[in-house]
Design a protein around this nucleic acid. Sequence first.
DNA 1: TGCGTTATCTACCACTTGGTAGGTAAGATA
DNA 2: TATCTTACCTACCAAGTGGTAGATAACGCA
Lengths: 191, 191
Amino acid sequence: MTASVRRRLPPAERREEILAAATELIAVSGFNGVSLGEFAAACGMTKAGLLHHFPSKEHVLVGVLERRDELDVAAVMGDADPAPDAETARAALTRLVHRNLGQQSVVKLYTVLSAEALDPAHPAHDYFRRRLRTSRDRLERQLFAWHPRPGEAAVELLAFLDGLQLNWLRDPEIDFEAHWESFADRFFAQD
Amino acid sequence: MTASVRRRLPPAERREEILAAATELIAVSGFNGVSLGEFAAACGMTKAGLLHHFPSKEHVLVGVLERRDELDVAAVMGDADPAPDAETARAALTRLVHRNLGQQSVVKLYTVLSAEALDPAHPAHDYFRRRLRTSRDRLERQLFAWHPRPGEAAVELLAFLDGLQLNWLRDPEIDFEAHWESFADRFFAQD
DNA sequence: TGCGTTATCTACCACTTGGTAGGTAAGATA
DNA sequence: TATCTTACCTACCAAGTGGTAGATAACGCA
């Protein structure tokens, strides 16, 4: 735990660097599978130096999740108040698919972490419960005018996307986009 | 790490007790999230006593996975050589769904562990890669006579089931069976 | 140039981890 | 009852954990 040269950064910049590194590491090994020291080493600093910016390991996790949320929701859902129809919903989900294709490590982060966080004792447990509910609600509202049981439809759409992501991570050969289109064709063809 | 009364069991029985306990614990917290001491305590014994039966923590994990496999594949896939048609495939998957509904903790084990094992350094990484491939192949063969692209179909079926399981674990209110039937109706209605 | 702030460091702590060494006691066989 | 095997224990270890205390050095500003 020794740093050869001391590199001093403005706090905002350093925080960003730490969160980016932590995101990668947690995506690979999960939160339980990685240590504060590894977060720090990935930024070329020491554990103690890192703890100056985040008072505990858990705070790093919270930071990572908040950072993703800022970008994610905005980027995909676009409009504050989208038209509540099937076309719009499908288009939004397709944007999500494309976006995810380009950032495998983020997908991995959410996948690994959300499984780990099934444990009620996990620090991100509540975060993922909230997140699931809100994205389901948002999707349900968009499907409301079209599908007879929009709640059920939302569950099935999200389940398929989650499962496809998981399988894509296990085997990156899988053609994510093609499978999504295939599923969506069937799904949105219903009366 | 003190045991009040010493309970001596025949090895087979003790191994079974340990694996059952470890299965539950890993299902809740993942392999990285639980310790040898906890495995042992759950059986009313010490770490050292447990290590007499399994020479390392990793051996416990292997034991847990092998134990599941013995039961699982046999129970669901039934015939050694099932008819390669869509009806048979759907029936087999429906049996799988029913079986899983009755053993949430096993589903949780596979879900949590297979996400954790995306990390190539995880001791169960190779196990899950093999497992994914074989179950996909088996399903693909069953869909061969019916679907124009049985490989793709197998991916989509398994992805949906994985995703639905994940969401069901996050929110047990979800009606697993109904969603499966709904998906299967659309899926198997294709030409 | 000197000074205060603070980002970062070294050194340490209490605790937990997976694992080992060697002793103890339960049960089967004689 | 005496003996052997072995399931299980106590006691320990080295390494790693998250986190703290206090020293040090880089930068902004007078």
